[in-house]
Design a protein around this nucleic acid. Structure first.
Lengths: 340, 340
DNA sequence: TATATTTACTTAATCGTTTACGTAAATACC
DNA sequence: GGTATTTACGTAAACGATTAAGTAAATATA
C-alpha cells in the first residue's frame, strides 16, 4: 500500500499541497469549508504526516534523547517511566541510549545527536565521565541538555538531583544511633558527583559524631556482581570488620547480602545494613532492608519537563535550574532489628 | 554556532554538494584525492549528516521502535538492554514507547509510526490487546514488526518467546513434588497469550498428576500492588486455602509475600511459593524465591536481530520466524525448604 | 587522427512538508 | 464607480542529503 501524503490529498480535492498543509494546521487563511473537506479526507485516507519531512523543514524533531548508563538498575527503569509520561503528554518521542558506563560511548552517542536528530538531551552521565567537551559541543549546537541524578554541575540547562549528601548523612546517623561503631561505605565510582556527595554525607556524619573515618572502611566496588561479593566477603573476614555497612548503590545489595551469608554474619544482629535503592521488594528481603529511596519517577518527570521548557525557549529561572527532590529514608529490619 | 552541512563543505572545497555526498559515501566516481580532501575537512569541521534529510531522501530512518507496557518490571528493563545492544551495533536508534497496559495507547502509538518515523517495530503487546487491526496497518505500510514475550501469533515478521507452557508445567510439577495438594495460580491478564500458556502449563501438570483444577485457585490480579495484597490475603484466609502458589508475573511477588506475612503463614513451611521473575535479588528474599527466569537480555537481542534482518529485506526462514528461548527453573527455599 | 571510452566532476530533481510571497476574485469604503 | 482591503487560494522556494543524468576533459582504441 502506497503511503498517502499531502500530494494525494491535494489531487483528490483539487487543491494545492500548500492549501492542504495550511488546512491541517488550521491556518487562518483557509476557509472553514475547505478545512473541513481536507480534515475529512485526511481522516478517511488515514493520512499521517511524514515525520522526517516535517522535522527537516521545521528544524524541530519533537524528539528527545535519554542517555543513561543502563536500565538494569531500578532507578533508571523507573525514571524512564517518568520521562516517557511527560514526553508523551507533550507530543515528544523518546530515544533511549545506553552508555554501559563507558565514557567513550557517551561521547560518540552525543556526537551523533549534534545535527538535528533530537531537540534536547536528558542525561545521567557515566561513572567514568570527566571531560565535559562533549557536553559543550551540544550546547554550542544549541541543543538544550538537562542532567538528572548523575550530573555535571552548572553547565547544562538544568539539573535534577536528590539530596544525596543529606540522605547519606541521615543513613549514617541512623546506623550510629543503632550503635554501630565501625561503618563501611561501599561505593561504585569516585569520579561521580553523586558518589562524592554520598561519601561526604557519610564522612560528615561520622565526624559530627566524633568518629574517625577509616580508609579501610571505604570499599570501591566494580561492575561485576560476582567479584563484588568476593570483595565484600574478604572485607568481612578482616579482624576489625565493620558492624555497619552502607551500600551506596542498589546493585551492591545482592552481593552484600550474599557476602554476609557466606561470612556467616546475621543481619542485623552481627552487622547492620542500609542502602540507596529503589527496589520494589526491599520490604521482603531477608531481612527487609533499610533504604534511601529516590523519587525516580518524579525525577524523570521533572527533568523531562525542564528540558521541554528549555526546548520551547522558555526561560528557566535560577531557582529552577537546579532542582533537588527529597529522597526518603525507610527504616527496616536490616539496620534496626525492628520487625518491619 | 551554525551547524555545518554539505553546502559548507562544498563551498570551502570549491566542489558541488553532490561530490561531497559521493565522497563521503565512498562512491567509485570520485577521485581518491578528492575523497581524502573531503574526509579531512569533514572531520575538521566536525560534520554530522542531518538525520532527517537522509531519512527523508532514503525513506529509511535507521530507527526502530520498542513498544512495551512499562519498564517497571525487571524483564522489560533487561530486554531493553538486549535490544539496545544489537541496535547500537547495527547503527540503529531506538525509540521507546510505553503503553501502560492500555490498548488505546498501543493503537495510537503504532498509528504514529505509520509514516516513516521508524523502519521497524518491536512490540510486547498490552494485556488488553485483542484486536489486531493496528498491527495489520503497520504490515500494510510495509513496516516489519517483531513480537517478543507477549505476542500475537503468526501475524508478525517474527516472534521471540520463552517456553512458557513448559516452564509453568515444570514449576507446577515441582510444587507437586514438594507435596503441595492445592496450588493457586495468580495471573494478571487472561487475554494475553503468554498468560494462557502459563495457565495451560499449570493446568496440564495438575491433570497429569491426577489433580482437579479448582476455579477458586485461579486468582486474577490487577494493576495495583496494594489491592493485590488485599486480594491475595483474602484468598489465604479461606478455609481451604492453597498450600502452594504460583505467581505468573514478577510484580505479584511483593504483594504475595506481604500477604503471606499478614496471614501469618510462613514460607515454605505453611505454604510454598514460586514465581515467574527476573529479579536480580531473588536469592536474598525472605525466603529466597524459586523462580522461572526468562532470558530477557537474550530475548531482546534476538528480537532486535530478527527485526533488523526483516528491515534489510533478508528472508526469515520458517524455523526462525518463531524463536523459543529456554527459561530456567531456579529452585530456592520458598518452595523446597532447601537452604539456597 | 578520428572516434570511443573512461574519469571526475556538476546540474538539477527528488524525498514530503512548510511558508513567504503572489494573485485573482470578492467585498468594503469613500 | 473607482480604489482599498480582505478572502482564499496557488506558486515556488526551502529544509539537507542523495542520485540519475549530463558534460567536459583525459585517455584509450582503431
Amino acid at each position: 500500500m502506497a503511503t498517502i501524503g499531502m500530494k494525494e490529498l491535494a489531487k483528490q480535492l483539487n487543491l494545492s499541497t500548500a492549501t492542504i498543509s495550511k488546512a491541517l494546521r488550521d491556518s487562518y487563511d483557509i476557509s472553514e469549508e475547505t478545512k473541513q473537506r481536507v480534515l475529512k479526507l485526511a481522516k478517511k485516507l488515514n493520512y499521517i504526516p511524514n515525520a522526517h519531512a516535517s522535522s527537516l523543514r521545521a528544524k524541530k524533531s519533537k524528539t528527545l534523547a535519554m542517555v543513561i548508563p543502563e536500565v538494569a538498575d531500578s532507578y533508571f527503569a523507573q525514571s524512564i517511566n517518568g520521562v516517557e509520561a511527560v514526553a508523551q503528554a507533550a507530543g515528544f518521542h523518546v530515544l533511549v541510549y545506553l552508555t554501559h558506563e563507558q565514557y567513550e560511548k557517551e561521547k560518540s552517542i552525543l556526537k551523533e545527536l549534534l545535527n538535528g536528530r533530537v531537540d534536547g538531551v536528558l542525561i545521567s552521565v557515566t561513572s567514568q565521565s570527566k571531560d565535559v567537551s562533549h557536553i559543550n559541543e551540544l550546547k554550542d549546537a544549541g541543543i538544550p541538555i538537562v542532567f538528572f541524578d548523575r550530573v555535571f554541575e552548572n553547565i547544562g540547562n538544568g539539573e535534577v538531583i536528590t539530596d544525596d549528601f543529606n540522605a547519606a548523612y541521615l543513613l549514617t546517623q541512623h546506623l550510629i544511633n543503632q550503635h554501630c561503631k565501625s561503618i563501611a561505605f561501599l561505593s561504585f565510582s569516585n569520579s561521580l558527583s553523586i558518589n562524592m556527595l554520598r561519601l561526604n554525607g557519610y564522612k560528615s556524619a561520622l565526624q559530627d559524631n566524633g568518629f574517625n573515618m577509616e580508609k579501610k572502611n571505604l570499599l570501591a566496588c566494580l561492575n561485576q556482581e560476582d567479584e563484588n561479593k568476593v570483595l565484600i566477603e574478604k572485607h568481612l573476614h578482616r579482624k576489625n570488620r565493620p558492624d555497619g555497612i552502607i551500600a551506596s548503590v542498589e546493585k551492591l545489595i545482592t552481593p552484600l547480602y550474599l557476602a554476609c551469608q557466606a561470612a556467616k554474619l546475621s543481619i542485623p544482629e552481627d552487622i547492620k545494613i542500609a542502602a540507596f535503592s529503589n527496589l520494589a521488594n526491599a520490604a521482603i528481603l531477608a531481612p527487609p532492608i533499610t533504604t534511601i529511596t529516590q523519587p525516580a519517577f518524579e525525577m524523570g518527570k521533572t527533568a523531562a519537563s525542564l528540558l521541554i521548557k528549555a526546548i520551547k525557549g522558555q526561560t528557566i529561572d535560577a531557582d529552577e535550574q537546579k532542582i533537588v527532590l527529597p529522597s526518603k529514608l525507610e527504616i527496616r529490619k536490616s539496620s534496626s532489628g525492628a520487625s518491619f
